[in-house]
Design a protein around this nucleic acid. Structure first.
Lengths: 219, 219
DNA sequence: GATTACATACCAACTGTATGGTATGTGTAG
DNA sequence: CTACACATACCATACAGTTGGTATGTAATC
């Protein structure tokens, strides 16, 4: 695999431009409905550049899923929800953060790898696996805080931290579908609210009304 | 192949066969990746028959969503979860029923209209609207029981029955995505378990261990 | 009750275009 | 002078949709 030139860092090289185009166009139109020409036009490169960097369209799909995993994990790693000392507060702050970044156009807040998983789960195992790695890799970053919260509050749970972490991702993915069905991001936020209420209930926390939202967004 | 030349009692044999093929093939491959030829071959009809019954491929998408809405609402209407006298028990029995029918091959238990919504939400408004009608129409059938349960148990909720009904659908849709990512239906069932725990918590019901499952399935 | 007229349900072959992918050329950095 | 990063031009195919036709049913007219 020819690594992209790190010697010209300022110039937006074709590979990254294609990955960014894939991230946005596929979230709008879906993977199958997005043609190679669509991506080239959106990225402002030619077809020769596309097939220079990606052997096939499927290979771009895998690369786009990996690109998504890298960029989102960087985003979440630097997000402020890790600040609270109380692990449960960190979990709740995570959910509040997720709620906060839902807004604007559908393609801006929905999940690339969730979208691709739906489409290719049965026909492109390589893409599906890359998507799964992104989803469950992200879910795994929540487990430590959930476990710590259980320990700190002496929760004898009949559920595992792993399953609750996965459930948060399921709620988000499902919320995105309802939002897509209507074009209204409020439907996704609404489900996150139910999820927050659920987590509070699991840990015996009273419904808090202090509303210290980490990110306000009214668009 | 002998020509089915009966038209009196039931309209168009080929039409129904195409809709059933669409239901199954689209759940496997997605809408965009499913060609008209795929559908014709799977249904055992010719392309002429396809375009006799459906003006365009998109028109079939709309018809498939409506077909899905009709057949699933018939299934749920005749399901046994309506039997309990206690409205909350009916809601919990619904969720248990939904959990019970998750199993087998992915295309057998996942949701056609959820799948299609993801793909066409931005490019085919007619299909998206038909899918939305199916999803929210089904969600609406839960509202009465949720409302009755609130009234009976004097729940002063900061959430609406409508939003909880929608949330159940979000959890199911999200669970399907996780299941598709791994090929394991247990991931979908796991999220339904969390949802059941949430609903019990909302109504102050202790985690029940009597396990009166409406449908057992070990696949 | 035979004829005409029209509608439905399908079939086989075809068409223009869009698609994923290839072959080959070119400018530039090292 | 060569390896890389693109660009241009092209190709075989798969695709949605069309065309023209056949077989059969229905209902009114003569």
């Amino acid at each position: 695999m020819p690594r992209p030139t790190k010697q010209s860092p300022e110039r937006g090289d074709a590979r990254t431009r294609l990955l960014k185009a894939a991230r946005d166009v596929i979230r709008r139109k879906g993977f199958a409905a997005t043609s190679v020409d669509d991506l080239c036009q959106s990225a402002g490169v030619t077809k020769g550049a596309f097939f220079h960097h990606f052997k096939t369209k499927d290979a771009l799909g895998v690369a786009a899923a990996n690109f998504w995993a890298e960029t989102t994990s960087a985003l979440f790693a630097s997000a402020p929800y890790h600040e609270p000392d109380d692990p449960l507060d960190r979990v709740l702050a995570y959910l509040d953060f997720r709620k906060g970044i839902i807004g604007g156009e559908t393609f801006e807040y929905t999940c690339l790898v969730g979208t691709m998983t739906q489409e290719v789960h049965d026909s492109a195992p390589a893409i599906r696996d890359a998507c799964a790695a992104s989803i469950f890799g992200h879910a795994a970053t929540l487990e430590a805080d959930i476990k710590a919260a259980c320990k700190q509050r002496n929760i004898a749970a009949d559920w595992t931290a792993e399953s609750l972490a996965r459930h948060t991702q399921a709620v988000l993915q499902g919320g995105f579908i309802l939002a897509k069905a209507t074009g209204d991001p409020d439907l996704a936020r609404e489900s996150v609210d139910h999820l927050i209420r659920y987590v509070r209930g699991l840990f015996g926390v009273e419904p808090d009304t202090s509303e210290a939202s980490y990110k306000e967004r009214s668009t």
